[in-house]
Amino acid sequence: MANEQKTWCVAKPSSDQATLLANINYACTHVDCQILQKGCPCFSPDSLINHASVAMNLYYQCKGRNQWNCDFRNSGLIVVTDPSKNYIQV
């Protein structure tokens, strides 16, 4: 079994709110975004950039983790560290 580098797709911090909303809407028409609903694991932190990153990553993972699946009109960023480990859940 190949030791493949795990990657994630996140929203660029420089993205504006309209772009983040468009990314959520686009990704969630193609993949199931139920984990973003209130009370679900990925709702917190409740911020637009976090929700966009989760939706974009769901799309990226489902579509085969290709570079172009994280472009989102140049507002996506492929990272090699798990973004869910970058903040403390309370």
Rank of each mutant, 00 (worst) to 15 (best):
V80S: 11
Q89K: 03
Q34E: 02
N57L: 03
Y59P: 07
N74D: 13
M56C: 08
V31M: 01
W68T: 12
Q89E: 00
I49W: 13
Y60W: 04
I24A: 04
N23Q: 09
D46T: 15
S14E: 14
N23A: 14
V79A: 10
C33S: 08
Y60E: 03
W8C: 07
A52D: 13
S84Y: 11
P83K: 06
N25A: 13
N66S: 10
T29C: 01
E4K: 04
I35A: 04
L58G: 01
Y60H: 03
D71F: 10
F72H: 08
C33G: 06
L77H: 02
D16E: 15
D32M: 04
D71G: 15
R73T: 14
N50E: 11
M1A: 14
N74W: 05
N74L: 05
T29P: 01
S15L: 03
K6C: 05
V31T: 11
I24Y: 00
G76V: 15
L20I: 13
N50F: 15
T7H: 00
N23L: 04
K38F: 01
N66R: 15
P45L: 01
N3G: 04
Y60V: 06
Y60R: 03
L58H: 02
V90S: 15
A52C: 15
P83C: 10
Q89P: 00
L36K: 01
G39K: 01
C40I: 00
P45D: 01
V10T: 12
V54G: 03
R65G: 06
D32F: 03
N25K: 12
Q17T: 10
G64E: 01
N57M: 00
I78T: 05
P45A: 05
P41H: 02
M56A: 13
T81S: 14
C33I: 07
A52Y: 09
A22Q: 12
C40P: 00
H51T: 11
V31F: 03
S47W: 08
K38Q: 04
Y26H: 10
N69C: 09
